[in-house]
Design a protein around this nucleic acid. Structure first.
Lengths: 109, 109
DNA sequence: AACATACATCGTAATATTGCAATATAAAGA
DNA sequence: TCTTTATATTGCAATATTACGATGTATGTT
């Protein structure tokens, strides 16, 4: 096994899980924080900022791109990464609905 | 390798990643949705609701419990699971800050 | 053209995750 | 006590993730 049974779950459940999974790594959170705080799109600066090898950073960027969370544009020799506003909003909405569905009502246990 | 280099990142980055990771699976999202919608705490009902083996559900519950997202109390033969309000709030806060740090400003790429 | 720079991809090793059958444990009832 | 019921744990197979060195691929520079 070792293979998630996606067919059992709803599209929304699978989609949310995929987005969360893409973010569920400290390196990828750090990368996103950098991209956001730099406001402009950084690129190989990430390799210096975080203490990871270039290949590793590139792989994390690929995962974020695959999930649609960031987008990259080639700018000469460098590649410019930035947040994909559409997916970001989707995540805010989907996860927001999910989180706020719990009202913290009278604890039963 | 295959081992996350947690020592490179901040506590907050690691903590958020851990919480997101615990939720980043459709089965665990489904479990949480059930627990929330049932309002009261359900238990083995999950095995019937979702189409997964009892051992698998139990394992997912364990992961959610380890992450502090849910808590379980023994009630006779059954175990009563519910959301841990503290962790839920922590996640809402931490992830909320993170998500809202991106203002969707002028796209650069 | 030859080279440097910036990324991406490949290949690989170490480890983690997912899922389940089988088995263990613990509480309630006969 | 013996059995049933509900859940946890163990052990295992299949697959995924993380990380990195080595190498490939563009693009710009001399």
């Amino acid at each position: 096994m070792g293979l998630t049974k996606t067919e059992i779950f709803t599209n929304e459940q699978n989609q949310l899980a995929t987005l969360l999974k893409a973010m569920a790594h400290p390196a990828r959170i750090a990368i996103l924080e950098q991209i956001i705080s730099a406001n402009a799109c950084i690129c190989g600066d990430l390799v210096e900022e975080l203490g990871l090898a270039q290949a590793t950073i590139s792989q994390h960027l690929k995962e974020l791109k695959n999930a649609g969370i960031i987008q990259g544009t080639i700018e000469g020799v460098t590649v410019c990464y930035c947040i994909n506003p559409k997916t970001w909003k989707l995540l805010e909405d989907q996860f927001g609905v999910f989180l706020s569905s719990y009202k913290g009502e009278a604890n039963c246990c």
